[in-house]
Write a protein that binds this DNA or RNA. Sequence first.
DNA 1: CAATAAATCAAGCGATTACTTGAGTATATG
DNA 2: CATATACTCAAGTAATCGCTTGATTTATTG
Lengths: 221, 221
Amino acid sequence: MAERAAKDALFTAFATVAKALGNGRRAEIVDVLAQGERSVDELAGEIEQSVANTSQHLQALARAGLVRSRRDGTRVVYRVASDEVAALWEMLRSVASTHLAEVEVLAAAYLGDRGDIERVSAGELHARLVDGTVTVLDVRPRREYASGHIRGATHAPLDELPRLADEMTRGSEVVAYCRGPYCVYADDAVRLLRARGVAARRLDTGFPEWRRAGLPVALAG
Amino acid sequence: MAERAAKDALFTAFATVAKALGNGRRAEIVDVLAQGERSVDELAGEIEQSVANTSQHLQALARAGLVRSRRDGTRVVYRVASDEVAALWEMLRSVASTHLAEVEVLAAAYLGDRGDIERVSAGELHARLVDGTVTVLDVRPRREYASGHIRGATHAPLDELPRLADEMTRGSEVVAYCRGPYCVYADDAVRLLRARGVAARRLDTGFPEWRRAGLPVALAG
DNA sequence: CAATAAATCAAGCGATTACTTGAGTATATG
DNA sequence: CATATACTCAAGTAATCGCTTGATTTATTG
């Protein structure tokens, strides 16, 4: 029956999008691009794959409509096609973490035991920001901070954190955030700060999630 | 570096979930299960695949944590693992339809030209339901209506619709709904009703989306 | 306990995937 | 215009995927 063939083709098209995210390296690429646009070369470095392979993965993502590219001189710069794509990636991660037991194990292997790291939800952090009772630190690389950050946050990359820690009021609480829930930077920052006697917690998500939730941000002009 | 291996493993685990949805037949299965639980046999019938193949697809989905099963006599009944899974499927469909041009084409091939079918959003329908200025028809199979439907909706499967149409007040507007945005039943119902002079539109989504949005439903006791 | 129904398992196949390597193509720069 | 940089393309290979077929397991029923 032709109707069956048409239905199969439609669902195969839906599946195309999932298939594009159905590879760890492509998932990593989307995760990085959720922070902001990147050239093929930069992405290859971030995911530690050959340029040729990275390029092919990017084309696979582009065929599925998840990323777009533009030329900038000799470079080709890729970005996620829309916020919806980043939201889909976030939801996928969430489903995986609640339904696949192994994710917890693998996350622990990658990030270390995080039992000691206290977390703050976006809602709570927003309330504290409005009150002015919290110092927010963005511990991502400078470029990511520059292209957009939580409104009122200070840039504090890990290598400058020891210096900054000494300047911090011992009384006021600090919240660090970075790329997302599975990003190590904020964990490392919290540990470093607590070791120096600063009361520190981390945002349980990251900047892309904060922005998509419609919470206040400062964006690059 | 071990850290890289750990990161790769974590992202590969995330990708496992996407991979499970990265096949048209498995996507169809999730789409059906979003309506309610089904046995392997029933599912095989719905997606027109062999029982063996369907069983294998179900096991793939179960390994990815997307579905669960229970035994009921000689049958094994599968269901989506949680509402979050159905929501992920909905979002995937949405991303595909906004970012993959071919989805529009394939949907038209499967559903026919829908330009003539007027659509109502869930928000508008809810408002009209509260006012009592609309008749809502559930045009899904009896079993699906029985396991849960929009509160206040009448069951009106396509084969009974001609009879029911004659009883309808010509003045009051009718809204039909079924499984989701890509389900034919509501389209067919609208065409049938309009051909008989009844002002009919369709809900732009379906029952699972309505329920997940927290709108009023009647569930099986 | 035999017979039946429903599902799973195992083996096999052609097609696809993920990577590598090496060549080819744009674009910018001295 | 030659050279360098950044990316894409093409071909090859081992591994995986999607399906089929036929045997096997699990639970119910006469």
